[in-house]
């Protein structure tokens, strides 16, 4: 049995190949780290997802709030907070921004004002006037640049903080008519969803050609306690299976699980437009 002497083991570390291997390993590790932290893919610039406010209060109300801030700008209310936010915390930061620096530089030469010159010659006076005019223009430019930078900053702030303002109108939200001021679910949408949930009808019960056009109209009156006071099928569809199914749905919906904000009389139109669109 042969034993490797210690000096030979140590000589491995002195081998130039070992050093190269170590370097390659280090580089690979750094590359992997860079890839995963997203430095190469610019993940840091990814836009923030819009924030939605989900209303978990399952209470039917007359004027529900939307599930997100109102995308329509409220002029009076919005103007005040925006000014405030710009005036106090943002302005000093903007002054130190690098965007402003290159334009602000030309004001520096104005500092060492060569005012106490001993003999002001007439040509020098004119030169001085011109110089002061140039300085004034430069200062004005700097102020304008600063204002532009502030405007940019403000726009960026609006983008990041007021994400809801940039949410497209067709993004789905909690309640379709949520423009009110009450926390809860729209009473109408609540009743609609409850009846729909209780409506069971197999498409195999109906003639396929009738699915797109079949429709019935019912009038339902609910008390504020959520109890069905009366109902009538105003315009039956003429299909016994369809009419029977919606009668069952109404009977199953005779007691809502929540009281309503007030008495409701609803005209409910039952049809299969959505089903027809899916099965087409």
């Amino acid at each position: 049995m042969s034993v490797v002497p210690l000096h030979q083991i140590n000589s491995f570390h002195k081998d130039p190949k070992f050093g190269r291997l170590l370097l390659v390993s280090l580089v690979v590790h750094v590359l992997i780290w860079a890839a995963f932290t997203g430095g190469w893919f610019g993940s840091g610039t990814r836009p923030k997802p819009p924030v939605y406010y989900v209303d978990l209060i399952h209470k039917p109300v007359l004027n529900p709030q939307a599930g997100r801030p109102d995308p329509r700008p409220k002029k009076k209310q919005q103007a005040a907070p925006v000014k405030k936010s710009v005036a106090t915390p943002v302005a000093p930061k903007a002054a130190t921004k690098p965007e402003v620096k290159p334009l602000a530089k030309p004001t520096k030469p104005a500092k060492p004002k060569p005012v106490p010159k001993p003999v002001p010659k007439p040509g020098q006076r004119q030169e001085k006037k011109v110089q002061s005019a140039i300085d004034e223009i430069r200062q004005r430019q700097a102020r304008e640049a600063e204002r532009d930078a502030l405007k940019d900053k403000l726009a960026k702030l609006r983008e990041s903080v007021g994400a809801a303002a940039t949410v497209p109108a067709d993004v789905p939200v909690g309640m379709p008519d949520g423009t009110g001021d009450e926390a809860g679910v729209s009473a109408l949408a609540f009743v609609q969803a409850f009846i729909q949930q209780n409506w069971a009808l197999s498409p195999y019960l109906l003639d396929r050609s009738r699915i797109a056009n079949i429709e019935a109209k019912a009038v339902l009156a609910y008390s504020s306690a959520g109890t069905l006071v009366r109902y009538r099928i105003d315009t039956p569809s003429g299909d016994p299976q369809f009419d029977d199914s919606l009668k069952k749905a109404i009977i199953k919906s005779q007691q809502l699980p929540q009281p309503l904000p007030k008495d409701l009389e609803l005209v409910v139109i039952f049809n299969l437009k959505e089903m027809a669109a899916i099965r087409r």
Binding site: V191, A200, D263, E265
Partner: peptide
């Protein structure tokens, strides 16, 4: 006070009969 509001249900909640 009891002006009827119109709502439309365009698909049954369940497309089978329990």
């Amino acid at each position: 006070a009891l002006a009827a509001t119109e709502i439309e249900i365009s698909s049954p909640g369940e497309q089978t009969i329990p």
